[in-house]
Design a protein around this nucleic acid. Sequence first.
DNA 1: GTGTATTTTCAAATATTATTGAAAATACCA
DNA 2: TGGTATTTTCAATAATATTTGAAAATACAC
Lengths: 183, 183
Amino acid sequence: MASVGSNRKVVSKQELEAARARFVAAWGQMGATWGISRTMAEIHALLYIRGEPLNTDEVMEELSISRGNASMSLRSLVEWGIVSRVHKRGDRKEYFQAEQDVWVLCRTIIRERLRREIHPMMASLYEVRDMTQGAGEQDVTEHNKRLDELLELVQTLDRLGERFVGSDGRGLRLAASVLSKVP
Amino acid sequence: MASVGSNRKVVSKQELEAARARFVAAWGQMGATWGISRTMAEIHALLYIRGEPLNTDEVMEELSISRGNASMSLRSLVEWGIVSRVHKRGDRKEYFQAEQDVWVLCRTIIRERLRREIHPMMASLYEVRDMTQGAGEQDVTEHNKRLDELLELVQTLDRLGERFVGSDGRGLRLAASVLSKVP
DNA sequence: GTGTATTTTCAAATATTATTGAAAATACCA
DNA sequence: TGGTATTTTCAATAATATTTGAAAATACAC
């Protein structure tokens, strides 16, 4: 048999760069269709795939974006909790690194979307329901039924999300167990 | 005890209208933060909460939107599979009605998002992975590891979605069973 | 404190997306 | 077939979201 280690593919710096760029583009595209700005998703992708902390200038350079844009987008990512600031001793610049555990990333995103979007929407739906609750007219009764069914769906999804997000790594085990049953 | 049926709240036509309008606004708002246009979500909300088929003119009137906008948005909703065209005999106008089963609605949305957004993105990620696979350099190996972990996450979510969407009403039972365990 | 590096802010510019409205196309009837 | 109702299309417009760039603010060293 030939030696095992010798026929490994060689990937040049340029090729690695190209792969990174394609990944950044794909992830940015995806973010754009899910309600976050393309740039934010691209910055996140860049920080994730590079693995190491980058400073604002490096992000600006890599993605050809302005300082203001980089600053605001990085702040947003930090507020979402999926990027954190890190300091390097001997360097006055601020560095940013992306969460490297993809399950933590996923849980964080779900937790934030529940908190920012789902819960306020549920509050609105409850308010709407209160506007007509208890009335006996035929059309109002049917209206209420439709609202209640939607609310029940949203509640279930919310509880699923909370369950998934729930502390420790149970979210992962949960998903795995769900997938293992009757495959 | 007082009679049970007599103290029902009375809800006027105006109040029902107001509740509908608030629902439409809330649902439209929600859609906007999840990557579908506000108008599309509002039309869907209107059709859902009204429960009965409406024609283009009624939709235009209720939401104060142009004929072109109504036409295109309704077409999109039909393409998504959450609104269907219905014909009323003796009426040349075309009517539209929203899916009334919220679980069918939910499954349809998930199915479409998997098909339109997640699967193409997964294809891109596989392509990116192929660009550097098998290389032995330290930085490339780490890059590949990050990509693979992300791919594994996306695959799991995809399988969860497919499972949820899977024919018959198992999605519902699945969610309920997940929630019933260790509450 | 001063001076310099770095970050943040935000009004203005740009790019993107959504909407209109009217012409063209289509559907239907007699 | 012609005539009318209805729907669709799409270039032009409007509305929205994003991005820039430079001034202001902040942080830090000395």
